[in-house]
Design a protein around this nucleic acid. Structure first.
Lengths: 200, 200
DNA sequence: GCGGACAATGAATGTTTATTCATTTCTAAA
DNA sequence: TTTAGAAATGAATAAACATTCATTGTCCGC
């Protein structure tokens, strides 16, 4: 049980930020607690004053990142009136948040994509929360008539989630060299209109 | 350098199949060469007669799986006339192949999704080949007028690839309890028509 | 039946690394 | 200045595991 859990001295955040950089660079499995400690400027043993173990570091990051994202979304979504506006907001916010910190995006998008046997509860919860938000938006759109009734909700949720995820991951791995947020509206347009140029 | 590379005795395939099952169960990093050897009914050292190392096993699997997939696709695509037919064929084939062997699908879909620093050349090549096929189909559709010109090819490729990937992965992790292939056409319809019920 | 070549074995080896904990350092109150 | 408690240290420990290789087993030609 970590005992020096005082967050006031900032060491918890320092270690977490260092871990994100190391995870982004090496991937979770190839990262070592020693590398994280070195990056944070502390001793190996200090890590265990603030975190249960190595896995706890990743889980804490995912939980915090998700929380911040959904809090921001809840705040912003009040301004949106229609389902389509909410969808645009969600994708825009997701891309903007990713663009703000590429390493966090890398860890969040890439390290979250593991078989469920490995995932901690936090990661599962984060994925479910995202799917739930998208599902709510789609169902709202169906009720207000702007979204088709004859689509399978499960497929729609997966299409949106996976596409957003993939576009962010591609941007991250490409070195963040272009304006990710500018892709949000074109991508949402694809979700809405599809690629067919006529009745297909 | 592995010297007993005779494939005639089937041991190479036996080890590969065992590795897929272990990778599917535990994930690549948590799988051990001992587990693979046990699953294949051989000694630890035998693995190294047929493969360079542990990483080589995964790379070989991905290369072979990709090759078989694209060969099958090349064979089947001759029957398709339009871009839309080809897209349907691609997604149908992908889902059917996945449904045929859930463990292979799990390893292929899940273990392929790592940061590029870790990826062997084979995995990168497989991903690129898939994106190229999708890109060709879309461009062909644009030329024949069935696919919109005003979409960004990169986004379309990523949407299709990621959605197919996610639907398969979800099916695999759900224990393969429903007809995956039956989702192919509804998913392609989503790609074509989008989710909007009117001009958006 | 023998011997050489090939295949296979699996404990040993070398290496890695998460985590612990005896000891040291730091901080703040008396 | 002293002391107690908290924080931090980082080598040691325990465990894991990829890979090697001396030895054994199998196969096949003579």
């Amino acid at each position: 049980m970590p005992v020096a859990k005082s967050k006031a001295n900032g060491k918890h955040e320092t270690i977490l930020a260092a871990a994100v950089r190391v995870f982004a660079e090496e991937g979770y499995f190839r990262s070592t607690v020693s590398q994280i400690a070195r990056e944070a400027g502390v001793a190996d043993g200090t890590i265990y004053l603030y975190f249960q173990n190595k896995e706890d570091i990743l889980a804490t990051f995912v939980r915090q990142h998700s929380l911040q994202f959904f809090e921001a979304f809840s705040e912003r979504v009040k301004e949106a009136k229609t389902a389509v506006e909410k969808l645009r907001l969600l994708v825009n916010l997701h891309f903007t948040v990713a663009q703000r910190d590429r390493w966090k995006a890398l860890v969040y998008q890439v390290e979250m994509r593991r078989s469920s046997r490995l995932m901690r509860k936090e990661i599962k919860d984060a994925l479910k929360a995202y799917h739930d938000v998208v599902g709510q938006i789609v169902e709202e759109g169906q009720q207000e008539g702007s979204i088709r009734h004859d689509v399978q909700l499960g497929l729609v949720k997966r299409m949106i989630f996976a596409s957003v995820d993939e576009v962010i991951t591609t941007w991250v791995l490409a070195g963040g060299k272009y304006d990710l947020a500018a892709l949000a509206d074109p991508l949402v347009d694809l979700f809405l209109k599809g690629i067919s140029s006529g009745p297909a």
